[in-house]
């Protein structure tokens, strides 16, 4: 899925600022892509590439906060670094609530900006990596048969084989076989590892046995 060098997307309505930022990012070894408006970015950006967005807060028509929301609606996890000429508290709170990683005031010093970019990219990569891992786990879960899934949820709730057999109305041996298959398909060597994987994939434990 995600691969290659991360890209810094710069969105600002000011051509001169765009050129300056692109040069600065390049001088620090980053790859930058520039966009003169939010709609242009939303239309053109590469969704699969990791990186971050440097976003001007005030732009005509479609401003930074609107773009942040549009990105969130599309399920994007690209970290956003806001740039603003004059930060006011209300907007910055709103931006941070919306998931902005940073809120910098123009003119911003290179180190400050580059540090923010580095951290944002790391975060993005971590997010992408986590997303990747979950996808792998989900793919493993997908290979389970319905019965095996059932056994898995009961395992997650910490029940013994005997209890599971009773709950599912079968014998303990059958459960043992299912359990071994689940462990194998999920590539978990211990029960603790299985629980961690299931948690990350968002699989809930079966409700405790009644009575």
């Amino acid at each position: 899925m995600t691969s290659g060098t991360p890209i810094v997307f710069v969105v600002d309505d000011d051509a001169s600022v765009l050129r300056g930022l692109k040069r600065l990012l390049r001088s620090a070894g980053f790859t930058a892509e520039t966009f003169a408006s939010a709609p242009e970015f939303l239309e053109r950006y590469d969704r699969d590439v990791a990186g971050c967005v440097i976003l001007d807060l005030t732009m005509p028509g479609f401003d930074g906060l609107q773009m942040q929301k549009a990105l969130a609606d599309r399920g994007s996890v690209l970290p956003i670094i806001f740039l603003t000429g004059h930060g006011d508290i209300a907007t910055s709170v709103q931006a941070m609530k919306g998931g902005a990683v940073d809120f910098l005031t123009k003119p911003v010093n290179d180190e400050e900006l580059l540090t923010a970019v580095r951290m944002a990219i790391q975060r993005c990569e971590a997010l992408y990596q986590a997303r990747e891992e979950i996808a792998i786990i989900r793919r493993r879960v997908a290979t389970l048969t319905p019965r095996e899934r059932e056994v898995l949820t009961h395992l997650l709730s910490g029940k013994l084989n005997k209890q599971i057999a009773a709950d599912l109305g079968t014998v303990e041996h059958t459960i043992k076989v299912h359990r071994a298959r689940v462990m194998q398909k999920m590539q978990a060597h211990t029960l603790a590892a299985l629980v961690r994987l299931a948690e990350r994939a968002g699989i809930d434990a079966a409700p405790p046995t009644e009575g």
Binding site: D14, S16, V17, R19, G20, L21, R23, L24, R26, S27, A28, T58, L83, G85, H86, D88, T105, K106, P107, V108, N109, D110, L113
Partner: peptide, 26 residues
Amino acid sequence: LSGSIAHEINQPLMGILSNAQAAQRF
């Protein structure tokens, strides 16, 4: 209008600073 004016001044300042620092790095 101070906000607007600050923006109008900060835009070129931003351009200057990032360009100059990029040049230093180059």
